[in-house]
Write a protein that binds this DNA or RNA. Structure first.
Lengths: 344, 344
DNA sequence: CTGTTAGCGCATTCAG
DNA sequence: CTGAATGCGCTAACAG
C-alpha cells in the first residue's frame, strides 16, 4: 500500500481530472460538478483511502475547526466533568478539542495560550488561574474568540460564570435554617475570585441572620500542593482536625468543595463524631461522588457539565457569528439536600 | 494592533532581511546567522508578538508534534487518570495532545482514528473497544505510530497491556487466603479482552485451590449504558441486590472495578450487612476514591497513571526512532490491602 | 553568512 | 461544468 496519504493530486491523476475538480467534490463545496465525475472521484478517493489533510485545508482557509480548552488539571473530577461537557458539545458541532492543563501555574497558562494560538485554534475556553490579561487580550486581537469560564477576570470578553457568592450564601443559610447558630467555613487559599466570593457569601448570610462572625471558625488551608482530588481531601482532613481540637466547635460547616467536605467528614467520623448527628457539613460542586458517599452529601450544585457544554455552545456561536454581540452569563446555584445536614 | 498574526514575512520586511533568515532565527535551526541580525530579528519578532504558525510548519515538515489519544470516556475517573499520565509525559517531551472519546462505540472509534489521521498526528494512543483492526492497520501504513493500551487486539503493533488475568487471580486468592470458600464475581459484559481474562483468572484461582465453581456466583451486569462512574456504581448495586436475595450467598466478592465494588458495598450496608464483618469485597483499579471510601477498599492496583505515561514514552520513542524495534510490555498487578476484606 | 525559490495540500479565483 | 494558476506560512535546497 501507499506509504503516504493520498492527496487530491493522486486522485486527480487516477481519474484524469484536475485537482480543482477533486477538491470541489471531496470538500462538499456545493460547486457544480457533473454527476459522472463526482461519482468517479468519490469512488477513487475511497479506493485510495483518501483522508483530507487538515493542515493544508486550515492553512489555506486561515482558520481551523479546533477549540482549545485550558483547565488547571484534568485529574480533578470536577474538571473532567467540565471537559466532558465541552467535548460533547464541540463534537456535536463539528469541532475538535485540544486540551491544555495549566497545572495552576500562570506561566504555563500563558504558554498554553500561545501554543493554542500557534495551532490556529478558532476559540479558547479558559479557566484562568492567573491575573494576567495581556495574553488573552492578544489572542482576541488576533481574531481568536475567548470565553472565560468559572473564574472572573478584568477583561472585556464573553464570560460564563457561576454565582459563587450566592452558592455559599445558600449553603450557609441552609445550615441556619436547620437551626445551626455556630457555623464554620472550611476553605482554600483566597487566590481566586470564586473563593473570595464564597467567603463573602458565607459572611453575608451570617450577618443577615444576626449571627456573629467568629474569625477562628474560618479555616483556610494554607498551601495548595497538587490538584488531585486527594489533596483536597487532605485539606478537609486538616481542617476537621483543627476543629476537633477546638473546645466549643461549630455545629455546622460550609465547605469550599465536595472533596474537602468528604475529607472532613471522614476525619470527624474517625474521631468518633457522627455526621450528621454530631456535626453537619455541606459541600460545594455536586461531584458524582457526593451522591455515593456515606452519608450522602448535602451540597450546592454547580451544573458543571452544563457549564462546559453551554460555554462551548456560546464559543461556537461567537465564532460563527462574530459580528453579533454576545453576552455573558452567570449560572445560578441549586441546593441539593441529602443526608449530611441535621436539624438541631 | 495587527488584526492578524505576524508572519516571518512581516518580520523580514521590518528588518530588511529575507524570510529565510527570519525562519532560521525564529525556528532555532542552528543555521549560522550573524549575531547582529539574530538579535534584530528576535527583537522585532517580540515587538510584533510573532507566534509561528504551526499549520504551515507542520504542512511543510509533513509531520506534526501532536499525539492523539482515544479513550472511551473522559468523565470516567479511571480514564482521566490515564489521560493525566499521557498528557504530562507528552508535554514533558514537547508534544501536544488531541483528545478523542469513542463513547464506547466502534464506529466512533474508527471516525476518531480518521480525524486524527487527517490532523496528521504522528502517533495515536488507543484504548480500543472495537474488534476492527483495519483502521489501525491503515493508520500504521500511512506512517502513523499506534500504541494499543489496556485492551488487546489481533494486530501487530506495540502494546502496553495489563495482566488482568493475574490481577483477578490475585484478588480471588486474597479472599481464599483469608479463608473464604464461597467467592462471588461481580462483573460487566464480557465484550472486551480484559474482562474475559479477569473471569478466567477468577476461575483458575478457584480451581487451583480446589474450590468448586458455582455458576450462579458469577453476576455480570447485562447492559452497559453510559460510562460515567455512577453507572458502574449502579451495576454494583444491582449485583449486591442479586446476592442479598440469595439464601446462601458467598462471603467474599471479586469486583470488576472499584466503582462497582463501592456500589455493592453501599448496597450491602443498606441491607444491614456490614463490610467486612458480614461480607468481604475486593475491587480493581485502585482509583483515588477507593482510598477514602468507608471502609477503605482492598483492591488491585492498575498503576493507571503510569500506564499512561509509560505508553506515551514508548510512543514518542517509536516516533523518534522508527527503525529501532520496539517491544510491547505488560504491566503487572499489585494487591493493595486495606479494610474491605476480613479473615474468616 | 544571506537571499531566492519551490513546494507541502488545499480551495479559490479567473478563464475557458 | 472544468482546468490552470495562485497563495496560505513555513523550511530546505541551492546560489551567491
Amino acid at each position: 500500500m501507499s506509504d503516504k496519504n493520498a492527496t487530491i493530486y493522486d486522485i486527480a491523476r487516477a481519474c484524469g481530472v484536475s485537482p480543482a475538480t477533486v477538491s470541489r467534490v471531496v470538500s462538499n463545496s456545493g460547486y457544480p460538478v457533473s454527476e459522472r465525475t463526482r461519482q468517479l472521484v468519490l469512488q477513487t478517493a475511497r479506493q485510495l483511502h483518501y483522508t483530507p489533510n487538515l493542515l493544508g485545508k486550515s492553512l489555506k482557509a486561515q482558520k481551523s475547526r479546533d477549540l482549545g480548552i485550558i483547565i488547571p488539571n484534568i485529574s480533578n473530577s470536577y474538571y473532567s466533568l467540565l471537559l466532558q461537557g465541552v467535548y460533547d458539545e464541540a463534537i456535536a458541532r463539528g469541532y475538535n478539542t485540544i486540551l491544555c492543563n495549566s497545572y495552576r501555574k500562570p506561566e504555563i497558562e500563558e504558554k498554553n495560550i500561545n501554543t493554542l494560538m500557534a495551532k490556529q485554534v478558532c476559540g479558547i475556553l479558559l479557566v484562568s488561574i492567573g491575573k494576567q490579561t495581556e495574553p488573552i487580550r492578544r489572542a482576541m486581537e488576533h481574531g481568536c474568540q475567548v470565553i472565560l469560564m468559572e473564574q472572573d477576570l478584568n477583561i472585556d470578553c464573553v464570560k460564563v460564570g457561576f454565582n459563587f457568592y450566592k452558592g455559599a450564601y445558600m449553603a450557609t443559610r441552609c445550615l441556619i435554617e436547620h437551626h445551626h447558630r455556630r457555623i464554620g467555613f472550611i476553605g482554600a487559599p483566597l487566590d481566586r475570585s470564586s473563593r473570595i466570593r464564597m467567603v463573602e457569601g458565607y459572611r453575608q448570610a451570617l450577618a443577615d441572620h444576626h449571627i456573629p462572625e467568629i474569625p477562628r471558625d474560618i479555616c483556610l488551608s494554607e498551601t495548595e500542593r497538587d490538584d488531585t482530588q486527594i489533596y483536597e481531601f487532605e485539606n478537609g482532613r486538616a481542617a476537621a482536625t483543627y476543629f476537633i481540637d477546638m473546645e466549643d466547635r461549630p455545629t455546622g460547616y460550609v465547605c469550599v468543595n465536595d472533596m474537602t467536605a468528604l475529607g472532613a467528614i471522614r476525619t470527624f467520623q474517625s474521631a468518633g463524631l457522627s455526621v450528621p448527628q454530631d456535626v453537619s457539613l455541606i459541600g460545594f460542586d455536586n461531584i458524582p461522588y457526593s451522591e455515593i458517599s456515606s452519608p450522602r452529601l448535602t451540597t450546592i450544585d454547580q451544573c458543571t457539565y452544563d457549564m462546559g457544554s453551554l460555554s462551548t455552545r456560546m464559543l461556537v456561536e461567537s465564532i460563527e457569528e462574530p459580528k453579533k454581540p454576545h453576552s455573558s452569563i452567570t449560572l445560578e446555584p441549586t441546593l441539593v439536600e441529602r443526608d449530611s445536614v441535621r436539624t438541631l
